[in-house]
Design a protein around this nucleic acid. Structure first.
Lengths: 292, 292
DNA sequence: GCGAAAATGGAACATACAGTTCATTTTATT
DNA sequence: AATAAAATGAACTGTATGTTCCATTTTCGC
């Protein structure tokens, strides 16, 4: 056993990422049952961290002794020391923002009050992102991007709080070479611009409660004219959800009454770049689609 | 014991936040050693989650039995069930986005490619937020808000990628009753509007590499005219940093070449609401400053 | 298809663990 | 100050845990 430890040229992974890499490298050469454990471990790292050898073995469908063999195959001297790596992984994670938000809202001991305000917005943004990453639906996303991909011109509808998102979409689509039209109130030309839209175009409408009447009304008109609408809104009861071809429910956290835009922004960018990638794949080289 | 369980009107905390609250509520009424454990538990939740009764007791400077008594004082039937709460806390934390980013950029096994794009933007946003929460400087923040607070009108300067942030600031300042002026290229009136600014006003300028020439030039002119400039930019070498009275370095992560705006947005909101709070305190009741 | 080597299942084992018990000390009450 | 009650320390105990061992099965080379 001492000899083995000596012959192992590379040091044992002390952090999860290194361990993950090590396992993936050796995946092919592992015995069946050991590989079974390896797959389970990477899929359920939390279980490994908290469970007992018996409980983990049962979940993974192997004998407890296999867990020890797995650890020893990787060079650890036992299951326990392997488990340490999985525990470290949880330890090292930064404090969840859920937690931070309540702290920020609570006592005011540390930091200036200005700092606490910024922390609050950071926490709200982070929470929004977490929620979205859990709730987003692959199929809805694919349908939305597919729909937008077919459009000649993408019209972007948003007012007030949602407007910054719309302007970023317009900017990004422009840079990516996708034709788009941002509907602003300022110009006063909204009705005229809207009248140009045809069923071969598409609309991205963004509105949260209290829904801007202009956005809702324009989206309704466009939808009635056969222009497909992709809506980003905050609930199934949103007027936008009623006539949108595809709609996303985005639950943004708020701080001090100001809703974060972090999740909405990320989704918007996802839609934008998703469409652009699809078009690049269609028009240009195929390899463009599988860029690094 | 059954009787006790019955008389406990409120259910046992199953999540960490509730437990934290419970402990803080009872802090006064707890015996000395128990209180010692309580303090240690809230300060070192990770230790409680992973340690053994013996190791934790040793670290906290008490007997192992005290840990069991602590758990029972709170209504749990033993140390183990209390420990579950501390473990759940770690379990519930979502995967760190640092981790996710590498996964997203790596193999393409799970989820559609569209999903991976959105995940990428979410990860970038989350990382930006993490970085900012670690790097933001209290003093800079206070100085910036103080400076903006003294302004009669706040001019907001941003183009292209940064423009959405500017428009959100303008929107928020409007809702909070702070006079502001958004400088847009569209109207073509930028020079005229800028000429109205006086040293009693202030500027928020936002620009990232490659810096929009209009933003830089306008900020330079305003600064030369004695109007104090608060800049949000990406490095000490930014032209904005040179003549800004106060400047923030924001390191936004990017995905596919598109930088996240999450951290910038949060900072912008912090500045905005910070100023508004200060003004409410100054003009209105004093208590407004120390709102809950 | 035979033999050796590796892998696997399952039971046995030593141990480290949470929880209990009880004697002692501290705190509160009268 | 005396007494009762609560809190604390420390040894003890049953149990559940990680680990080892060995018989059996599977895999691989010849």
């Amino acid at each position: 056993m001492d000899d083995m430890a000596d012959t192992v040229s590379e040091a044992l992974p002390r952090d999860f990422e290194a361990l993950r890499t090590l396992i993936l490298d050796r995946r092919e050469s592992l015995p069946k049952r050991i590989a079974q454990v390896a797959a389970y471990a990477l899929d359920n790292p939390d279980e490994i961290a908290f469970g007992t050898a018996a409980s983990i073995a049962s979940s993974a469908g192997v004998q407890p002794s296999t867990l020890i063999r797995f650890a020893q195959h990787l060079g650890y001297d036992g299951f326990t020391s392997l488990q340490q790596v999985f525990r470290e992984r949880l330890r090292e994670r930064t404090t969840s923002y859920e937690e931070r938000l309540t702290v920020v809202r609570g006592d005011a001991d540390d930091g200036t009050s200005n700092r606490r305000i910024v922390d609050g917005f950071l926490a709200a943004a982070s929470k929004s992102i977490d929620v979205m990453s859990r709730n987003i639906d692959d199929e809805t996303l694919d349908r939305a991007i597919d729909l937008l991909n077919g459009a000649e011109t993408i019209y972007i509808l948003a007012r007030r709080r949602s407007y910054p998102v719309a302007s970023y979409i317009a900017y990004a689509l422009g840079k990516l070479g996708v034709r788009s039209q941002l509907i602003e109130s300022a110009s006063g030309l909204s009705p005229e611009i809207i009248s140009f839209a045809t069923p071969r175009d598409a609309v991205i409408a963004i509105s949260f409660s209290p829904y801007a009447s202009a956005t809702v009304e324009e989206a309704r008109v466009l939808s009635a004219n056969g222009v497909p609408v992709v809506a980003i809104t905050d609930s199934a009861f949103s007027p936008l959800a009623q006539f949108a071809r595809v709609w996303f429910e985005v639950a943004e956290a708020d701080f001090g009454g100001f809703r974060s835009l972090a999740a909405t922004m990320a989704l918007a960018m996802g839609l934008t770049v998703g469409v652009a990638e699809l078009r690049r794949g269609r028009k240009g080289r195929k390899s463009a689609n599988s860029k690094a």
